[in-house]
């Protein structure tokens, strides 16, 4: 198999599902394909894509980041607590500080994981609790004030293209470029593939790990800032659902929890599937609670299908030759 073959195998399942769902949706409801519906979709899906990107880079190194939700929450309440300054500088403040806060939190995670052999699961489990406490400390209840300028982000357009869409495409493109065309990006895959071998090839695991967890914090911070603009407020619990959802999106998007395999191109597809489900249920007038069951089922289906030795396990196939 060649590189292209491998990449195709990783991303095909996701987009096949997206296509299937899209067609099904359009068939069942005419209003699905309207411009409004789709713009709305972009807007909603962006934070999940950002969270998915955060989780993907971490998962590629064989780790995991359970603090994504709390970091998003912290960024959200931070954005809503910034002092209102009546100048254009306000927007700059608002777009810089929450992501930087996220970066700082991610860096702390990275430090703990890189310097000592603490398992990422536990470190981020603990830090998610700590960061949640921080978020609650900043804002006990949803509220705060988000400057009006900032809310332009969610509903504004540049050259007729909605800003959320631009943001999403920029983030994904940047992440993809990072992973495929930079040295640290390739180091991420090598580290996830086999840490010992990566070290032998001169890769510094502590630097790479510090980098990915910081990056995860940065993306989470962006997501939090975006969410506060969308909701006109900060919410210390806004990030809660994003932890598990980001893992699901990363995994459906083709990345393996073992590390070393996958990428960000599938994250868009994965996030889309999630929101498409909600969208469809809405348009079809079905109880929104069914989304959980649908998501669970799709998660299982997507993974079962991409399992390489599926037939073998079911006892139906021959074992591979040596």
């Amino acid at each position: 198999m060649s590189e292209r073959g491998r990449d195709l195998r990783i991303y095909l399942p996701v987009y096949a599902i997206v296509l299937a769902v899209y067609i099904f949706a359009g068939w069942r409801s005419a209003s699905f394909f309207t411009w409004n519906n789709n713009v709305n979709l972009f807007g909603r899906v962006t934070p999940l894509i950002l969270a998915g990107l955060a989780q993907t880079v971490v998962i590629l190194t064989g780790g995991i980041d359970l603090s994504v939700g709390s970091m998003i929450s912290v960024a959200s309440v931070t954005a809503a607590s910034l002092p209102y300054v009546d100048t254009p500088a306000n927007l700059v403040l608002w777009t810089l500080i929450p992501p930087l806060a996220g970066l700082a939190m991610g860096a702390v995670n990275g430090l703990l994981i890189a310097k000592w052999p603490f398992p990422p699961f536990i470190v981020t489990l603990a830090s998610s609790s700590v960061y949640l406490g921080l978020a609650l400390y900043i804002l006990r209840e949803p509220g705060g004030e988000v400057s009006l300028d900032a809310t332009l982000v969610s509903s504004g357009k540049i050259q007729g293209i909605p800003i959320p869409l631009l943001l999403m495409l920029a983030a994904v493109a940047a992440a993809h470029l990072l992973l495929s065309r930079t040295r640290i990006g390739r180091s991420i895959y090598a580290l996830g593939g086999n840490e010992t071998l990566a070290i032998q090839s001169g890769i510094r695991p502590d630097r790479v790990k510090f980098f990915v967890y910081s990056l995860s914090g940065l993306f989470s911070g962006l997501a939090g800032a975006y969410l506060s603009a969308w909701m006109f407020a900060g919410d210390p619990l806004v990030g809660e659902p994003y932890v598990m959802n980001s893992i699901a999106v990363a995994v459906i998007g083709g990345s393996s929890l073992m590390g070393g395999r996958g990428g960000v191109l599938g994250v868009v597809g994965g996030a889309y599937i999630f929101y498409l489900i909600n969208n469809i249920l809405n348009l079809l007038g079905i109880n929104a609670f069914y989304q959980y069951i649908a998501k669970g089922a799709i998660l299982i289906a997507a993974l079962a299908v991409s399992a390489p030795d599926l037939l073998q396990r079911l006892g139906l196939g021959r074992r591979g030759s040596e």
């Binding site: 390739r186 895959y189 090598a190 990566a198 090839s201 001169g202 890769i203 070393g260 395999r261």
Partner: peptide, 13 residues
Amino acid sequence: LPQMSVAENIFMG
């Protein structure tokens, strides 16, 4: 690393 290409492996790092 088995899941990477020959070229990438040769230039790993």
